[in-house]
Simulated assay, not measured.
Amino acid sequence: MKNKTKKIKLGEMFCGPGGIAKGAELANKKISKLFNVELTHAWAIDNDIDAIKTYMKNIKGVKNNSVICTDVRALDLNQLKNISSINAFAFGFPCNDFSLVGEQKGFRGKFGPLYKYGKEILDIFEPEFFIAENVGGIRSSNNGDALKEIISELSRSGKKGYRITTHLYKFEEYGIPQSRHRVIIVGIKNELNLTFKPPKPTHIGLKEFVTCKSAITKPIISKRAANNELTKQHPRVIERLKHIKPGQNAWNADIPNSLKLNVKGAKISQIYKRLDPKKPAYTITGSGGGGTHVYHWSENRALTNREKARLQTFPDNFIFEGQKGAVKKQIGMAVPPEASRILFEAIIKTLQKDSYEFVEPNI
């Protein structure tokens, strides 16, 4: 007689369109066979209505009351008990105030302190493990004190605390076709007496990286694919792109004076930057205006949202809700599902005391 599958109920805060949840579904293909364990949706929270609609459309197990659109500061977190208990928790707390691209306000900013709501969830539910994700820039925020304080607080969560592992992941080293570097904190309940180790990178060096061209063109995206509308480029933008070679941007390309940008101050490297087809993409972001849309290596245009979703490892049948700009934001803010899958598989192996190749934490 087959043993009953153990359900690991996953709660999420700042869930976005469902990159982490989709990764959990992908991880189930392996962990359900190896350990008779399955990650399942319990509840999810985000304040972006379009992201919530996307989550509800694509993630398995969603119920009418299990996905909540609200600002966490306006929610009584204890009410989540009425929806479901959890034994796993994930929160990619807002990165705006920790990003190197922004002002790096850290705890002084509007978004910096929001991780505390994740700590409240840990205090209330005491799940077996949690995952917290943020940008690499958090390491230097508030002179390095922000990350130390966050780790310290999370480690003291719940009645007996959590054993913390913090690591800077370079996702291109795990087969993600994008240079996306993120700090991920994994905590396992102290009473389990287990220590998580980051899984060993599977793609070492440029020759092994998955290129942006390969991700976008193999297989060819169907013309009927959702979220694949072309952006109408201004003739001046098209003319400018003609002078920018793959890998170059508006500042290091040989552009005629008549087409150069009149910018004073900081010159962000991603402005009108073409992808290099022989390398992973540069980081896909959800913010920014003209010139930040990520540009094709040979065609004089910005990528479609579906092409960006490919670079974020979302499958083509994952359909994003909302207008084009809202979809761009969702894609750029999400955790790549394949990165999430790799993390969940390693965490479940840790809980099951199964072996896997790992590296020592670098933070």
Rank of each mutant, 00 (worst) to 15 (best):
N3W: 02
K6R: 08
G11S: 10
F14K: 04
G23I: 15
E25T: 11
V37M: 14
V72E: 09
L80E: 03
N87S: 05
F89T: 01
F91Q: 09
P94L: 14
G109P: 11
L114T: 12
Y117A: 10
F130P: 01
G137K: 13
E149V: 14
G158Y: 10
I164C: 07
P177M: 12
V186Q: 05
N190I: 00
N193W: 06
N193G: 09
T195I: 10
H203G: 09
I204P: 00
C212I: 15
K218P: 00
I220E: 15
I221H: 03
S222K: 12
A226R: 05
N227Q: 15
E229S: 14
R236E: 04
R240V: 09
K242W: 00
K245L: 14
Q248R: 00
N252K: 11
A253C: 05
I255Q: 13
L259I: 10
G265F: 12
I271F: 00
P277M: 07
K278H: 10
P280Q: 02
P280S: 08
R301H: 13
L303I: 13
T304W: 10
L311P: 06
A326W: 01
K329Q: 15
V335S: 05
E338V: 05
E345C: 06
I347E: 13
I347N: 09
L351K: 04
D354L: 00
V359D: 15
